[in-house]
Amino acid sequence: MTTTTTPTLELRRNSHGRLVLRLEGGIEHEAVTPVRAFPIAAPGEGLSLVGSDGHELAWLPRLDVLPAAQRALIEEELAAREFVPSITRIRSVSSFSTPSTWEVDTDRGPARLGLKGEEDIRRLAGRTKLLIAASDGLHFHVPDTTALDRASRKLLERFL
């Protein structure tokens, strides 16, 4: 395993559109996957570049230490694999006990999610940021509960 703490690396796409990492010494690794250590709490901090075999090839303490072109490549890759819609409105819930089905609006459009239990709603970074794990494995984010409309906050309070 080759791990670096400084961003002495080169990133590019190959002819198939896959990310290629060239480390100091000229060693190249194809099909590299960027993985955030803290995708919601600190998305710009702690990034691992992982090889196709699942081993870490490089560690970046901060994404902003990379040159703009390399940072853009990583951000494109992350956007393609990270899908965490933000809930902007809760339209309805099937029941105030769990399991229940929620009809919500998100920044990616309307969605329907199943909630198995109250423990599937987790508070992040204070009292107003939430992560909701739907029964199908998809995660939804509420960046600020106080920004939701009054009806949505009232429905949400029944589960918190």
Rank of each mutant, 00 (worst) to 15 (best):
91 R>S: 13
129 K>P: 00
107 D>P: 10
85 P>C: 04
114 G>V: 10
90 I>M: 09
95 S>H: 12
116 K>A: 13
131 L>Q: 13
118 E>Y: 10
107 D>N: 15
124 L>Y: 06
89 R>L: 05
121 I>W: 12
130 L>T: 01
86 S>M: 12
130 L>G: 02
128 T>K: 14
94 S>K: 13
99 P>V: 00
91 R>A: 14
128 T>G: 05
126 G>M: 10
85 P>M: 00
124 L>V: 14
127 R>H: 12
104 V>E: 02
136 D>K: 06
85 P>H: 02
99 P>Y: 03
130 L>F: 13
88 T>E: 06
120 D>T: 15
114 G>P: 12
136 D>R: 02
97 S>W: 11
92 S>F: 03
108 R>A: 01
106 T>L: 04
126 G>K: 11
136 D>A: 05
107 D>V: 08
138 L>I: 06
106 T>E: 04
121 I>Y: 08
126 G>R: 08
121 I>V: 15
87 I>T: 02
99 P>A: 04
134 A>N: 03
123 R>S: 14
106 T>S: 07
138 L>T: 06
91 R>V: 14
136 D>G: 04
89 R>N: 05
95 S>T: 06
88 T>I: 12
88 T>F: 05
106 T>I: 07
111 A>P: 00
126 G>H: 11
99 P>W: 02
131 L>V: 15
108 R>E: 00
91 R>Q: 14
108 R>D: 04
114 G>F: 08
101 T>G: 05
